[in-house]
C-alpha cells in the first residue's frame, strides 16, 4: 500500500482528528481520578472507541464494578458489528488482513468512506482513521497530564462537538425520501429508547431501522 493512496483519507481525517484531540483530552481529564495516570492512555491506545470509553468510565466512576462497566462498553461498541459487515465486501486479501483492517472502523471514517451505494472506499477509511488514532491517544495523554489546569470539559462545550459533526455527515446522505424516512425513524426510535434502555441500545436499535432496505424501494 503506498502512502499516496491514503493521502485523501489522511486529509479528510485531519479536521476530525482535531476534534478528536479535544474529546480525547476531556477523556483523559475525566478518567485520571478514576483510573490513575497510565490506564486511560492504555485504554485509548488499545480500545480506541470514544463512546465505549466514556460509557465504561461512567460506570467505574459510580462504583459500578468491572462487569457492568464491560457490559456498558460492549453495548456501546456493538454497532461496529453491522458497520463491519457493511465494510467487509470492500476489503480484499487474507482473513487475517481483513480482520486487521476492520479494526480501523470508527464512526467518522466509516461515514466518510461510505460511497452511498453500499460500497466503501477502503483507502479513505484507513487514511482517515490514522490521524484520528494519533490525536485520540495523544489527546488522552495531554488530558491526563494537564487535566487539573483545564477544569470541566463541559464548560468548553466539547460534548456538543460530535453531534454537530455527525449532522454534517448525515445531511449529504439524505439523497432520497427513503433515506430521510430511515434517518427520521432511527432518530425517533433512539430518542424514545434513551430513558427505557441501557446506553448503547438506542443506537443499536437505530441501526435496525436500515433493515427496511430488505424490501425494494
Amino acid at each position: 500500500m503506498s502512502g499516496s493512496r491514503l493521502a485523501p483519507g489522511l486529509r479528510a481525517g485531519f479536521p476530525i482528528a482535531a476534534a478528536g484531540l479535544l474529546i480525547g483530552l476531556s477523556f483523559g481529564v475525566l478518567a485520571r481520578p478514576v483510573m490513575g495516570p497510565v490506564a486511560p492512555i492504555v485504554m485509548s491506545a488499545i480500545l480506541f472507541a470514544g463512546s465505549a470509553q466514556f460509557g465504561s468510565l461512567a460506570v467505574l466512576a459510580a462504583g459500578g464494578g468491572a462487569v457492568p462497566a464491560i457490559v456498558a462498553g460492549v453495548l456501546l461498541n456493538a454497532r461496529f458489528l453491522p458497520l463491519g459487515i457493511a465494510f467487509a465486501p470492500s476489503l480484499r486479501g487474507s482473513p487475517l488482513r481483513r480482520a486487521a483492517e476492520g479494526q480501523a472502523v470508527v464512526d467518522a471514517s466509516w461515514a466518510l468512506a461510505n460511497q452511498g451505494d453500499g460500497r466503501f472506499d477502503r483507502d479513505m477509511l484507513l487514511g482517515a482513521t490514522i490521524p484520528q488514532y494519533v490525536s485520540w491517544v495523544g489527546g488522552t495523554a495531554i488530558g491526563v497530564a494537564i487535566g487539573d489546569a483545564l477544569g470541566d470539559p463541559r464548560d468548553l462545550g466539547l460534548d456538543a462537538l460530535f453531534p454537530a459533526f455527525f449532522l454534517a455527515l448525515l445531511l449529504p446522505e439524505l439523497r432520497s425520501r427513503r433515506f430521510v424516512t430511515v434517518a427520521a425513524a432511527a432518530a425517533a426510535l433512539a430518542f424514545v429508547l434513551i430513558p427505557l434502555t441501557p446506553p448503547g441500545i438506542p443506537v443499536l436499535a437505530g441501526c435496525l431501522v436500515a433493515l427496511v432496505g430488505l424490501r425494494s424501494a
Binding site: 464512526d107 453531534p163 455527525f166 439524505l174 434517518a183 432511527a186 432518530a187 438506542p202 437505530g206 431501522v209
Partner: peptide, 15 residues
C-alpha cells in the same frame, strides 16, 4: 448497508 449510514448517524446525533 446503504441505509445503515443515515440510520446510525441520526441515532448518534440524538443520543
Amino acid at each position: 448497508i446503504s441505509l445503515l449510514a443515515p440510520a446510525v448517524l441520526a441515532a448518534l446525533i440524538v443520543v
